[in-house]
Write a protein that binds this DNA or RNA. Structure first.
Lengths: 184, 184
DNA sequence: TGAATTTGATTAGATTATCTAACTAACAGG
DNA sequence: CCTGTTAGTTAGATAATCTAATCAAATTCA
């Protein structure tokens, strides 16, 4: 979590910012000849931005003492509530993590009374997961912040650029989801 | 790490893929009125793609038994080697993590003889970090894969789109780095 | 019908990447 | 030469993951 360290002391001897040039040089020297240079640099940038973007969201969510993984689960339950049977298995399946991982996440949420586990009458092996009133409240308090944080991520782009950007992200998302075999 | 679970069993009862519509509806219902809807959706998509992109890189690096954080450090050393004094402090500073975190990462790398810690003669408190021959070798073996993975991330875009995409990422990166106060 | 297999959830135990706080050694300045 | 600061480490914690094992319920099938 706490990806925003409070600056221990100001370090004296700093490494200079490199910018992109050294990476471009490195790329030239170390990539296979069949790797497209421009693509590689763009991909690298996407990696950097992707990282930062997650950090930004983490920081905003931390005001609510919740992490992205936990918010993910709460949101998933919220979205399917009263429509589908939400179980640890189905959550694991959807998030692409193991059931045991979901169990620990749910334990944490349960301990804080954000969710309710109730036995599923039609199949004694399953547990139905619901949001508690507290969980619902939290989701509803967090969502406006979540959305405004999302919006702030693309602040630097004007309307036209954003539209283009969105279109490309949709393409990329499709491609990558296919590769990873997961999705929303 | 292992973000590609080997599918424990095939779950029967799955939650349906939602796609973006439910998120669009949710946004409508739960965002502040001053949050731009299109921006928020684009930001959300960026969050998703950012996540996937890191997963993809993780998977490719795992063939070399190394993680992104560790590769980050090795690359940082590699890029500054013989030009600047690389120390745990300066690494911490650059990566935006605490010195103690760097210590554990370095311990891991050290145990596998990928780096060398040598006392810095001009200041007895400092340690100079270098790549060992093994570390150098690893970096050189990993880099081609690293680059081709980067390039593969934007496979779905054609040349023109990629150029535009790159331009926008540069903008976004600048903005976000300013907010986070870190950078390369 | 009853034994064997499958499935859902959990537990136990490990790893990775972080953090804060405390400590030690070395340096720097009066 | 004493005091405070800095560099690195250690100790101990938490979060998010994993695999393997266990237990109970459901299903299958001979």
């Amino acid at each position: 979590m706490n990806r925003k360290p409070a600056k221990e002391y100001t370090t004296e001897q700093q490494l200079p910012r490199l910018g992109t040039k050294p990476y471009r040089d490195l790329l030239e020297r170390t990539a296979n000849s069949d790797t497209d240079r421009d693509s590689a640099l763009t991909g690298l940038l996407m990696l950097w931005v992707g990282d930062s973007v997650l950090d930004v969201m983490d920081i905003h969510l931390s005001d609510y003492d919740i992490t992205e993984s936990k918010m993910d689960i709460l949101l998933l339950i919220f979205l399917h509530q009263d429509q589908e049977l939400v179980t640890p298995s189905s959550i694991a399946d959807r998030l692409g993590i193991r059931r045991s991982s979901v169990t620990s996440l749910l334990n944490w949420l349960d301990k804080r009374d954000l969710i309710i586990r109730e036995p599923y009458s039609k199949d004694g092996r399953m547990t139905h997961i619901r949001l508690s009133p507290e969980g619902s409240g939290l989701v509803q308090r967090v969502l406006p912040v979540f959305w405004s944080t999302c919006a702030s991520l693309v602040d630097e782009l004007d309307k036209e650029e954003r539209e283009l950007f969105n279109k490309m992200l949709v393409k990329l998302n499709r491609g990558i989801e296919k590769r990873l075999g997961a999705g929303r």
